[in-house]
Write a protein that binds this DNA or RNA. Structure first.
Lengths: 119, 119
DNA sequence: ATCGCACCTGGAGTGCACTCCAGGTCAACC
DNA sequence: GGTTGACCTGGAGTGCACTCCAGGTGCGAT
């Protein structure tokens, strides 16, 4: 049962310490354990959950939606069908994002080609 | 030499009227012509430029960078090499975005599969 | 013992990109 | 001639996601 100091979690997840505290404050991260001096000691699960948060955030999920997902996770296994629905919806949005980016990228590359052709 | 009313440009570009005014105010759009009553009449070029802006914005380019690009365009043809550099750099960022999204998407899909397997 | 350092709290501040609002003009239609 | 609707201006307000700050605690090294 390994525990992690704030600095280790910052290193591991890429979130700043302030962001970690912010996530705890708004409930995206459940109340993290403290040591005798009141300092945070993150559990393995905390770190794993932060990995999921990292992934959802980096794919553009708003915090409000992640918060709903967090609540489903906390509510227990009977919410798994709802979690699947939420992630499937998000997966569709990620696909749409990728398609859109690829489409726009074509425009940008055409523009570069055009500029090259007039040099 | 066709001209466009604000409503037509909103329709065509998907930008709100407020956004169009904002872009003009900050100089992302050059001073748009007015009719006798002081209402905007957008030129074909304005609409074309807004297409480029749409593309750059949707691929995550910050307004400050678009502003630099706009200045290069206004400065004349001798800035074409600089424009190419700017767009190539942006193209790299778009590629990185797509790669990152694709990577994260794998994680999400694995998670969905896992949830399906425990049902 | 005192220094530096990692950490704590509550709350204020920031940056970005809009978005909204109040009060007004003008042309067209009933 | 009155009302509607599209548009105008300058400036204030919003939402999101952090990020920073002041003032304080506890611990290990010099």
């Amino acid at each position: 049962m390994s525990v992690y100091t704030p600095a280790e979690v910052v290193e591991e997840t890429g979130f700043s310490l302030d962001t970690l505290r912010y996530y705890e404050k708004i409930g995206l991260l459940e109340r993290v354990d403290r040591n005798a001096a009141g300092q945070r000691r993150f559990s393995q699960e905390d770190v794993g959950w932060l990995g999921t948060v990292r992934c959802l955030r980096d794919t553009g999920m708003p915090i409000a939606t992640m918060l709903r997902f967090a609540e489903l996770v906390r509510a227990g296994d009977h919410t798994i069908p709802d979690r699947i629905k939420l992630l499937e919806e998000h997966d569709r949005q990620v696909r749409a994002q990728i398609d859109n980016l690829a489409e726009r990228q074509r425009y940008i590359r055409n523009k570069i080609s055009y500029y090259r052709s007039v040099l």
